[in-house]
Amino acid sequence: MDTLLQQLLNGLVVGSVYALVALGYTMVYGILGLINFAHGEVLMVGALTALTVITTLMGVSPDMPPLLLLGIGLLAAMVVCMIVAFLMERLAYRKLRNAPRLAPLITAIGVSFLLQTLAMIVWGRNYHTFPQLISTTPMQPIEGVYINPIQITTIVASAIIMVGLVLLVTRTKLGRAMRATAENHRVASLMGVDVNKIISLTFVLGAALAAVAGVLFASNYGIAHYAMGFMPGLKAFTAAVLGGIGNLGGAMLGGIVLGLVEAVGAGYIEHLTFGFLNSSYQDIFAFVILGIVLIFRPTGLLGERVSDRA
């Protein structure tokens, strides 16, 4: 029972990160019908930018309070990621907006490689220790169940951001324009909406969430690396499909569910396979789920019919 509770908690932490990244996938898909496979790399750029900023600041003024350091690092990560995403859309995807679907998809994979390679040039091939500015000392709220402050921060921060995003999209004039544009670019422009701006904004917003996810992810594991975005990116994409791509609530639900399944699966995989597989095979679960969803419910948990947008 304790193991289950512990794994559920761990799942919630990693699921929150997946959810933040999945939102970026799903927003861009909703508005352009594009799977932006480079989105996972934005998380990596966020983590490594924060790493550089934080370590530099630590060198310059060693007395700076850790939370301020983290705040500045996070802010820098968000700004850099937003710029990267803006340029990505402007330079790579915009020209392909009316191209056959395969062209932007392959371009997205290309952008992903490009970002990874650039990051490798800038930050090298080595794993970097990411400063854990929020404590990772476990507490034991319930006998046998451990949770540390960075995990709590991850869950709480993700929840706040997600609520904020939902409010933005459902309650504001800007959100209304985003939803209108997602449904019909042409008619939205007839309402006076600058569709290009809304699309840029969607990319930039998704990138800001990915930056937060990247910093939280690196803070949890204490590691940053030029290829660190690949797996969470793929998982978040799975989460977006699981929840119903194009659907905000779906991305959040999909992220959390995926995190939980993965963590619980990892906790029991040894028992399940009689010791044949250990918990390092936990990635299996995400992709088994992806396969099952695509076969039995391609529209995802909360998906309507698959969007008819081109």
Partner: peptide, 8 residues
């Protein structure tokens, strides 16, 4: 919401 889009 449709009507309000008109006043965007």
């Amino acid at each position: 919401e449709n009507l309000r889009m008109g006043a965007y």
